[in-house]
Simulated assay, not measured.
Amino acid sequence: MKRLAIFDVDYTITKKETLMELYKYTIKEDKRNIRFLPRALFSGGMYILGFYDEKRVKESFLKFLEGFNEKEMQRLTKRFYKNRLSKIIYGDALKMMKKLKSEGYDVYLISASPEFYLQELYAINDVDMVIGTRFDFKDGNFIRSMNGNNCKGEEKVTRLKEVLKEKEIEVDFKESYMFSDSLSDKPLFELVGKPYLINYKKKHQIEILRWK
């Protein structure tokens, strides 16, 4: 049976929220993308007020990528990983991945962030699987329509089990790890025998690790 080391991404292995970093990176490449900032602020405000759910917020926010074809998107996400995303990953997270990989664990990254750019995290040699929120392309062009549910909370467990079933992988969850900065990952914490909170600011019964 496999043993997994599962990691959330935003604020767990990265110092910042990755989707916002992608948006800021596109502004750096093309200053005209600043025009999408009011939409981002409006969508965030509507979410805080309870008018938008996370799916609608993400679909609205991703307007700045609408119309990118798949090849353009691949080139963008590779540049984003090389020039920005790779530079905001905690060194301690990479060390933990390497350590657990050397002990025979498979390293899975599971995040609510979009999978189309998280795929670049396969560049980390120790990563075996990346699971994120899926978005659609139509006729080869990005349409910012979420495919399925936002990969958060219980949906992370659902997506994980779908992947394991598809690949016919049996897992010893009691001997598996889960690392996250947030209690929104409670379903995954409860699934494994070795849960850890990362840089959590309050006291908790789950052991807290401080990563830099």
Rank of each mutant, 00 (worst) to 15 (best):
K138M: 10
I198H: 00
Y122H: 03
S86E: 03
T133G: 09
S145Q: 15
R144T: 12
N83A: 08
Q74Y: 10
F116Y: 14
G148K: 04
T158S: 08
M146T: 06
D172N: 13
K28H: 11
P187N: 05
L85H: 01
K99T: 13
D106K: 08
Y52L: 14
D185K: 01
L37I: 09
R32A: 02
K63H: 10
K212P: 07
Y108L: 02
F51I: 12
I88H: 00
M178G: 05
M97T: 12
R56L: 13
I208A: 05
R32P: 00
L22G: 07
F173S: 02
V107D: 04
L160R: 12
V130Y: 09
M97R: 12
G67P: 07
Y52S: 04
N199V: 08
I208D: 04
F61E: 06
R3D: 00
D92K: 14
I6A: 02
K16N: 14
E17N: 14
P114I: 10
R56V: 11
S176Y: 05
S180K: 04
D30N: 09
L197F: 02
N125T: 15
F179V: 01
K167W: 06
S86W: 02
R39Q: 03
F64V: 01
L118D: 02
K203D: 14
Y52W: 13
K63P: 01
E54Q: 14
D185Q: 01
F42V: 08
P114H: 04
L76A: 15
R39S: 11
A5G: 09
E166C: 13
K2M: 12
I88P: 02
I6T: 06
L164E: 03
K167H: 10
Y90H: 11
L4P: 06
F116T: 10
F137R: 11
S113N: 09
T26E: 06
P38Q: 09
K202T: 05
L188E: 00
K161T: 06
Y11C: 01
N149I: 03
P114V: 07
E54S: 15
V130P: 04
G153R: 07
L109E: 03
I124K: 01
E175C: 00
I110N: 01
K194L: 07
G45F: 14
D92C: 14
D92N: 14
T12G: 06
T12Q: 01
L118G: 07
G140E: 05
V171R: 03
F189L: 08
E162P: 13
